[in-house]
Design a protein around this nucleic acid. Structure first.
Length: 722
DNA sequence: CTTAAATACTTTTTT
DNA sequence: AGTATTTAAG
């Protein structure tokens, strides 16, 4: 293995392979390079077969990239290596083993929406009031308990008073309901493998033996179940390597415990500790500023990154009148850095604390035809129309899934209302049947004749697909299903642009199933559903798109961009929360700020608005974020405050962003266009003329679509901007 | 049971 | 402001 391109510390981190290793890897210190080289080293120089290696990453995308890089380094097939997020690794293990825990391996994974729906059902079943037991709050409470590995039994033992008692009851019933539905929520995914290891030591032996070397990235953000999982796997052979940075710990709100990294040596036994402190990413100025803020934190391991890179530009601090002015100034910066400057759109990222902030910025970018991509917010697979179709597919595979049943039993509308559904629920509970099973025996159900007929047909439909899905591929099943429920007509008959967009999204879902099928060895419906429930927007992100990226700081973890703009630096927004912070909360916000700034290679812009609207109400005066005053004055330049001209009067559109209103646009073969959902694309063919022209467009990711010009809401892109 | 209109609610952050 | 949920009318 050629390790010459590594610095001495990096090299040491790669070469030490016996016993636990902790690598403190500061931002931009080349930890990905270390991890990939280490894996390659393990295979080539230590002789460990790839399938005996487990590497845990923070996103699926990072996992794919890691695999890819190792493959390139070794020039051999490493597909048998286990690389993935905690959740996807766990799901894979459970697919094989979960029968031992009394579930069937057809289990479905409930996302937050599904799990909330189930909590709601449980609350109703227990005859509790949704006003005193808010489903959302209950769900959060349950999830928190699970992250701390507090079981329903344990919670039941510590209750005090009526509210506690009922909460604990909801938790316990929720857990039971998950099992009856043959479903796991995200937290279960982490807990069930531990349960498996505890109850079936033979299986633990097997996996300890299989995963002879264990690597974990972003270790500072592991929670208790994740810690236990790693510990269980590696406590015998003790060949474990974790990488992390306590300054970048930003997930304590979901149970991540920074002590997992700080106490690593105590728990895993005497560990080699290596510090990577040379930064290869940012300018001296950026590092100085980032450090100056994060060093205000009291609970952190003392360290300071250094770099050989240039001093670089000062950070710009920009004052804005309100959030719309902020968007406009961001637009100006984009113009300066791309058209007048030397950067491409894809070199720029706009970061913010909350997803809600993206809307105003998005409006400005769309108006001016700047290509952009938003990560997060409403995730593609969480859209209603997509989830509706997925619910059909899930019910076909797992007929006991009550949440999916409820979702689609009256979608598209087939005359089944609230009362009928309640009767099905009651009957199911009484006779210990799944909802779908109730439909087998409609005679005893006291619903109208019309409803019975309709329910019967629904049942037939699901059964038809249950009988055929095993022999068919996922794309064909989905296509047949869409035809059977006549979804295209359902949406097209509504004749609104919104409905059309929804149908487009359903088609996009079909595309992604096709894509999945073409690229995976195991490409059944079950595998697709599993992948879909664990994918994040980051994983779907097409980095080759020449577009400005918008995302939360949390999503930006592990990424880097030449130019970083951070919006909304105001007290209460960033740091987020009330004025009275718990020290720990404030320090986490500060780490978040640290993460934001250290994403940047060359330039950083920080903006704040002196008034901001909340929920579209009246503008409320704000105060500049304390983080700005924590920056060294010598390294920042303030601007924007003096520009008092009203943009409503003297708004001059940046001339380089050509803007055409969608209706007046004439599209031609070969034009580059941007679509709100599908991103950037190129027109391959035009049928017809004007508004009603049918355009065939190839979007990024090889997604081919036929759209009607007047509905598609396409923005022309100036090709010269690329 | 369905549709339309009224009103309540939203903003942490994510697997 | 925009979306989801609840209520009233058909």
């Amino acid at each position: 293995m050629n390790l010459e391109e590594l610095n001495p510390q990096q090299r040491k981190a790669v070469e030490i392979t016996g016993g636990p290793i902790l690598i403190f890897a500061g931002a931009g210190s080349g930890k990905t390079r270390v991890l990939t080289h280490k894996i390659a080293y393990l295979v080539k120089d230590v002789g460990l077969p790839p399938d005996n290696i487990l590497a845990v990453t923070f996103t699926n995308k990072a996992a794919d990239e890691m695999k890819q890089r190792v493959q390139e380094l070794l020039n051999m097939d490493v597909s048998s290596m286990s690389v993935g997020t905690f959740h996807s690794i766990s799901a894979r293990i459970l697919r094989r083993e979960i029968q031992l825990l009394g579930y069937s391996n057809d289990f479905v994974i409930y996302d937050q929406d599904d799990s909330r729906a189930l909590v709601k059902m449980v609350i109703k079943d227990l005859n509790l009031d949704e006003k005193s037991f808010v489903p959302k709050a209950m769900q959060a409470h349950i999830s928190k308990a699970k992250n701390q590995m507090i079981s329903p039994e344990l919670m039941a033992n510590t209750v005090e008073g009526f509210l506690d008692e009922k909460t604990s009851e909801i938790y316990s019933q929720y857990q039971k309901a998950l099992k009856t539905n043959n479903a796991l929520d995200f937290d279960d995914l982490l807990l069930k493998p531990i349960e498996l290891f505890n109850e079936h030591p033979g299986r633990l032996d097997f996996y300890q033996n299989k995963y002879q070397y264990v690597l974990v990235d972003e270790y500072q953000d592991t929670n208790k179940p994740q810690f236990e999982f790693i510990q269980a796997l590696s406590r015998e052979h003790r060949d474990v390597c974790v990488v992390g940075d306590d300054d970048q710990s930003i997930y304590s709100w979901r149970g991540a415990d920074v002590n997992n990294i700080l106490n690593f040596s105590d728990t895993f036994g005497e560990a080699h500790i290596i510090k990577l402190e040379q930064n290869y990413r940012s300018t001296k100025t950026i590092l100085e500023c980032a450090w100056s803020v994060v060093s205000k934190n009291t609970t952190r391991a003392e360290k300071k990154l250094w770099t050989d890179n240039k001093q670089g530009d000062k950070l710009s601090v920009i004052e804005c009148r309100d959030e719309r002015d902020e968007s406009w100034k961001i637009l100006k910066i984009i113009q300066d850095e791309t058209v007048h400057g030397s950067f491409g759109f894809d070199d720029l990222v706009i970061l913010y604390r909350t997803n809600a902030q993206s809307r105003v910025v998005e409006d400005a970018l769309r108006r001016e035809g700047v290509p952009y991509e938003i990560i997060g917010g409403i995730k593609f697979y969480a859209r209603k129309e997509v989830k509706d179709v997925l619910a059909y597919l899930r019910l076909i595979i797992n007929p006991t899934d009550g949440v999916s049943f409820d979702r689609i039993v009256n979608f598209p509308v087939r005359g089944i209302g609230k009362t009928s559904i309640e009767k099905i629920h009651a009957y199911a509970k009484e006779n210990d049947l799944s909802y779908l099973q109730v439909l087998e025996d409609l005679g005893k159900l006291s619903v109208g004749a019309k409803q019975k007929k309709s329910l019967h047909a629904f049942n037939q439909l699901i059964h038809k697909f249950r009988n055929s899905y095993k022999g068919q591929n996922a794309v064909d099943i989905t296509r047949d299903l869409l035809l059977d429920i006549d979804l295209q007509n359902y949406y097209e008959n509504q004749n609104t642009q919104e409905a059309l967009e929804r149908w487009n999204n359903v088609e996009e879902l079909l595309n992604s199933i096709t894509d999945f099928q073409d690229n995976r060895e195991e490409s059944g419906l079950r595998e697709f559903l599993e992948e879909v429930s664990l994918l994040t927007d980051i994983d779907r992100w097409n980095t080759s798109d020449k577009a400005v990226t918008l995302m939360t700081i949390h999503s930006a973890k592990g990424l880097e961009f030449p130019v970083v703009m951070v919006a909304g630096l105001e007290e209460g927004l960033f740091p987020l929360g009330p004025q009275s912070f718990e020290v720990e909360e404030l320090e986490e916000e500060r780490r978040l700020f640290y993460v934001a700034v250290t994403r940047a290679k060359k330039k950083v812009y920080l903006s704040y608005a002196i008034t901001r609207r909340r929920f579209g109400g009246a503008p409320i005066p704000t105060t500049q974020s304390r983080f700005i005053s924590e920056l060294p004055e010598a390294f920042i330049q303030e601007e924007g405050g003096h520009q008092k001209q009203a943009y409503t009067k003297s708004f001059t559109r940046p001339s380089s962003f050509q803007k055409l209103s969608p209706s007046s646009a004439k599209f031609q073969k070969g034009d580059h266009v941007a679509h709100k959902l599908f991103g950037n694309g190129k027109i391959l063919d035009v049928e017809g003329e004007g508004d009603s022209a049918k355009l065939t467009i190839i979007f990024s990711g090889n997604v081919r679509k036929k759209l009607i010009a007047k509905y598609a809401n396409l923005s022309p892109l100036k090709t010269s901007a690329y």
